[in-house]
């Protein structure tokens, strides 16, 4: 059997999720791992938007904020089960992405970046200021998902850290699977075509603005679900999740690792999630190092880290 890139990617991810825990020196690493997977899910959405469709969003954290606060607010105010709150957040994010994206994506260039930037900051401002609803900058408690209890009843007893590690890992793999399927579908091919040349794609009959809009909406759903997962595993959420810096982090993770491929982007998510953990020793220099890494990778390894490393390993310039 020949290994397609899709199966290969999924196998690598599954192996990564399953095998790494054997090397964890302490329970704390489950938490870091879960964080990487949550970020990995968000950047998979960025791969669809930026890697496939060639559009830039600087406000995706806004969708993560919607997803996160849906989990905090819907169970309390609407009596929804937290799992349904995740769905509600995703639907709201998709609707907002559609509304914002529809007029913008007819335009070329960095307009989507600008519009999404404005949108993201407005969302985070609302989360910060509407204290009666969101309790403002101090953050708000999020109810338990309840799934761990169900698993316990079935005889599968996981610690909180272990549960969220595996659960986030599985959701990330599902997300990657969906993104890879999209990549191979006619829609995915059309998206890549418009990334290559919008005019050429239009000439062969691709509905360019509709496709860009689809990519934007899909990636918003990814960001929203990742925000929900983050809120649920921390049982707490603050407006920072919707902040500008978080949006930048998402794009940077994807582009750093290699936005052209799901594996590359998730690799980038891993690196940038680990970097602050490693750099706590020199917390003073954290910002400088982060900024420097962003610049150096973009200047010298334009396709991103993973594709560049793979190319080195193959030893050819292709």
């Amino acid at each position: 059997m020949k290994l397609t890139p899709k199966t290969a990617t999924l196998l690598v991810l599954a192996a990564l999720v399953a095998i790494t825990p054997f090397f964890f020196p302490s329970g704390y690493y489950y938490r870091v791992g879960a964080l990487i997977f949550v970020n990995g899910l968000a950047v998979t959405g960025i791969v669809i938007l930026t890697g496939y469709a060639g559009q830039v969003s600087l406000g995706h954290a806004g969708f993560a904020g919607i997803g996160g606060y849906a989990c905090a607010l819907a169970p309390v105010h609407l009596g929804l089960h937290p799992a349904l709150a995740v769905v509600l957040g995703a639907v709201m994010s998709a609707a907002l992405a559609w509304l914002v994206g529809r007029p913008i994506l007819r335009l070329k260039g960095y307009y989507l970046g600008v519009a999404s930037l404005g949108m993201g900051i407005l969302i985070s401002m609302v989360l910060n200021n509407e204290r009666w609803l969101t309790r403002g900058p101090d953050g708000i408690d999020v109810p338990d998902l309840g799934l761990r209890g169900v698993l316990k009843d079935w005889g599968l007893n996981l610690s909180n850290g272990e549960f969220w590690y595996f659960f986030s890992g599985i959701v990330m793999i599902l997300g990657a699977w969906a993104a890879l399927n999209l990549h191979q579908s006619p829609t995915g091919r059309a998206l890549r075509a418009l990334h290559g040349s919008e005019i050429a794609a239009r000439t062969v009959g691709v509905d360019v603005s509709r496709l860009k809009l689809q990519a934007f909406v899909i990636s918003a759903v990814y960001a929203s679900v990742s925000g929900s997962l983050l809120a649920l595993q921390n049982k707490f959420i603050t407006p920072d999740v919707a902040g500008f810096m978080h949006s930048i982090e998402m794009v940077t993770m994807a582009v750093l690792g290699g936005a052209g491929s799901v594996l590359g982007a998730i690799f980038g998510a891993g690196i940038l999630t680990l970097l602050p953990q490693v750099l706590t020793v020199f917390a003073e220099y954290e910002q400088m190092v982060l900024g420097l890494v962003m610049m150096l990778v973009m200047i010298f390894l334009r396709e991103g880290l993973l594709p560049s490393i793979l190319r080195k390993l193959r030893g050819t310039g292709e």
Partner: peptide
């Protein structure tokens, strides 16, 4: 370099200068 890369470079520069 593509627009995304340039945006990330200048944002990286801004984070670097701030740090």
């Amino acid at each position: 370099a593509p627009v995304v890369s340039l945006i990330i470079i200048t944002i990286g520069a801004s984070i670097f200068i701030r740090g």
